[in-house]
Measured scan of single mutants.
Amino acid sequence: KRYRAVYDYSAADEDEVSFQDGDTIVNVQQIDDGWMYGTVERTGDTGMLPANYVEAI
């Protein structure tokens, strides 16, 4: 699945990823209600991200 960031996010922990509004997130997997795991296409960084900061595309 592919998602697009709708807000900027700065990683708060080493297992999270930072991204900017408009970034595409690929290979996304749902972890639980609030978190997903995926790769930021622009940077190649992979990690956890907050589900409410992205939307499906």
Rank of each mutant, 00 (worst) to 15 (best):
G38D: 03
G44Q: 07
G22A: 04
R4A: 06
E55I: 14
A51R: 11
Y3L: 06
K1G: 11
M48H: 08
A56H: 10
T39H: 04
L49V: 10
Y9I: 00
I57E: 10
A12E: 11
A12Q: 15
W35T: 05
A11Q: 06
T43S: 07
G34C: 15
A12Y: 09
D15W: 14
G22N: 06
S10N: 14
R42P: 04
D33K: 09
E41Y: 06
T24W: 14
T46L: 04
P50A: 04
D45F: 08
G22H: 04
E41K: 06
T24K: 06
N27H: 09
T24R: 07
I25H: 01
M36S: 04
D15F: 14
T24I: 15
G47Y: 00
D13T: 15
M36T: 03
Q29T: 14
V17D: 00
A5P: 04
V28W: 05
T39I: 05
V17F: 05
Y3H: 05
I25M: 06
Y7G: 13
E16Y: 09
G22M: 04
D23T: 01
V6I: 15
V28H: 05
T39P: 02
E14M: 11
T46Q: 10
L49H: 02
I25T: 02
A56P: 14
V54I: 11
Y7V: 11
Y37S: 08
K1S: 11
I57S: 07
R4S: 06
S10W: 13
Q20N: 11
R2P: 05
V17I: 11
F19S: 02
A56W: 10
N52E: 12
E55N: 07
D13G: 15
G47Q: 00
V6Q: 08
D8S: 14
Y3S: 04
D8W: 07
I31G: 07
I25Q: 00
D21K: 15
A12F: 10
I25W: 01
S10F: 13
E41V: 11
A12T: 12
I25G: 01
G44V: 02
S18C: 04
V28Q: 03
W35Q: 03
V17T: 03
Q29P: 00
V40F: 00
D45N: 09
D33H: 11
A11S: 07
D32E: 10
V28Y: 04
Y3D: 04
Y7A: 15
M48C: 12
A56F: 12
V26W: 07
R42G: 06
T24C: 12
Q30S: 11
A12W: 08
Y9P: 01
T43D: 02
V54K: 00
A11H: 03
D45W: 05
D33Y: 09
E55M: 10
